[in-house]
Amino acid sequence: MQVFAEAVVTAVTLLFQGSTELWNVIAVTFEVAIVSTAAGVVLGAPMGFVMGATRFRGRRLLVALMNTAMAVPPVVIGLVVMMFLSRQGPLGFLGLLYTKDAMSIAQTLISAPIIAGLTAAAVASVPYKLRLQARSLGASRVQEALLALREARLGVLAAVASGFGAVVRGVGAVMMVGGNIEGQTRVLTTAIVQESRKGDFGLALALGLILMTITFAMNGFLTWYQHSNERFERS
């Protein structure tokens, strides 16, 4: 059990020592996570909104596809992205393999279906009667949709947080397409894999704690935001 206490000490020491290597890893982790979550929102949220708020032919198939996409192992996504970006691949001429851009592309493909799927569920869970009421009061289709989005905003926010969580804790895809290059494409999760492989379990655990702290801060913010919203609505 001593190893866990030591890991906490190591984590704190590493952070406050100002080790540039660690801060660089954290910076890359954030950069890739934020870029790919933002891209995931741009791609996934509108699609999820349309899936959740409207009815159209093929919608169920799309929902099923989206749920399947959510369950594809990141390492498979990494493999596909790698094959596309490889020199022998169709996009090899871009020279993106083993760069942060390649990592962001793979992570976007992971976050977008999650954000789309959860946004769809959040928007669809807005009471249908409410929307009927709005329509009977003369709301246009667009106004009705915006109302649904407003009502579902906390669920949409949770969808975005899930997308962020998925990319910040992901390892398989970024390891493959980023290559875990020190000072360039190394992120917290790939560093954890590496330190575990080396047998430095204490350091690996410390890095895990740092990652958990980031996720905790993110979730704490979300919970606080939800609560402040609920209070606002009750008053």
């Binding site: 490889s86 393999l97 083993y98 020190e182 080396k198």
Partner: peptide, 17 residues
């Protein structure tokens, strides 16, 4: 480039770049 990965990954990367 220090990549902290296995032999196969290192060879693949060297070949790619």
């Amino acid at each position: 480039l220090s990549i902290g990965q296995g032999m196969g990954e290192a060879l693949t990367m060297a070949s790619e770049i």
